[in-house]
């Protein structure tokens, strides 16, 4: 019984991590650049949700589109300030510019909100649901559902829409896309916006159950990086799988051994996977451009 409960918790956490990793991998595919600010964007999304909830006492599900919309604007700003001026520069300079964005976000949030941990409102309610002996927080179910829908929505956007085809074309070969008349710069900015919106969603989802502090982005970027790499650099399915794997170690494995042992086991598992699959679980997708 407890195993089922742990699985539900692990799935909820993994679903939220998957949103973080997804935002990271979309930007990676579109630009070949590592967005190191992704963790801090999640943190900023959490604080945004807290701030909005302060003036709008509505359930989190109502705030979600608002948070995602505002975070998309922030994503546009990040692309404008930290990526576009560096697009034809060494990719590692984007790494540094997004580190700087992370520092700005972290310390800006400390200035605006102070250092206290904060909790965002629940998506629907804070009650628990009893399912055949399982005590599941309503929020966990809502997180799994909302994150799942967002992941599917992202997939639908990229696979089925005209806009998605353009975004994918930009990601695959920007030169060719430009030659075909696709506004590449706009597409890249849009990808940053989508990535930041997903980060905002993750921030809203995570900061209800797990709170948010100005320094909580740092741990998330490591998790996203591991998820994305272990899944196969640039592979969207790999990123989601990697995120679930990390959550499984964090929740399920640590229910049997200590947290430290579970963390060590996670990194050892990463090293073992790289030994046998040196290109990640799902193989390389971003290729040499990354």
């Amino acid at each position: 019984m407890i195993v089922a409960q742990l699985l539900v918790n692990g799935l909820a956490l993994g679903a939220a991590y998957a949103l973080v990793a997804l935002g990271f991998v979309l930007v990676l595919n579109a630009t070949g650049a590592v967005n190191f600010a992704q963790g801090d964007l999640v943190m900023a999304g959490g604080f945004l949700a807290v701030a909005l909830a302060g003036s709008l006492p509505v359930p989190g599900i109502v705030l979600l589109p608002l948070v995602m919309g505002l975070m998309a604007l922030l994503g546009l700003a990040v692309s404008l300030l930290a990526y576009l001026p560096l697009r034809n520069r060494p990719p590692v300079s984007v790494f540094i510019s997004t580190i700087a964005v992370g520092i700005i976000l972290q310390n800006g949030v400390i200035l605006l909100f102070g250092p206290e941990p904060k909790a965002a409102p629940a998506l629907f309610g804070a009650t628990t649901v009893s399912l055949g002996g399982l005590v599941i927080p309503e929020q966990s179910i809502a997180v799994i559902a909302v994150a799942g829908l967002l992941i599917l929505g992202q997939h639908w956007l990229f696979a089925r829409t005209q806009l998605g085809r353009r975004l994918r074309a930009t990601a695959q070969d920007p030169e060719m896309a430009r030659a075909c008349g696709i506004p590449v710069t706009a597409m890249i900015a849009l990808t940053f916006a989508v990535g930041a919106a997903l980060a905002g969603a993750a921030g809203l989802l995570l900061s209800n159950q797990f709170f948010v502090t100005p320094s909580s982005g740092a741990g998330l970027i490591l998790k996203a990086y591991i998820a994305v790499t272990i899944g196969g650099w640039g592979s969207v399915a790999g990123a989601v799988t990697g995120a679930l794997l990390i959550a499984a170690f964090e929740v399920v494995a640590s229910a049997t051994v200590s947290y430290s042992a579970a963390t060590a086991a996670l990194y050892l598992a990463v090293l073992v996977i790289l030994t046998f699959r040196p290109q990640g679980l799902f193989g390389e997708a971003a290729g040499a451009r990354a």
């Binding site: 300079s93 510019s97 580190i99 964005v101 700005i104 310390n107 200035l111």
Partner: peptide, 21 residues
């Protein structure tokens, strides 16, 4: 006092944009 790291981040961003090499 509390904004110095914010300022640091802004200058870091400015430096990397101005001198990407």
């Amino acid at each position: 006092e509390r904004g110095y790291l914010l300022l640091y981040g802004v200058v870091l961003l400015a430096v990397v944009v101005a001198a990407p090499w």
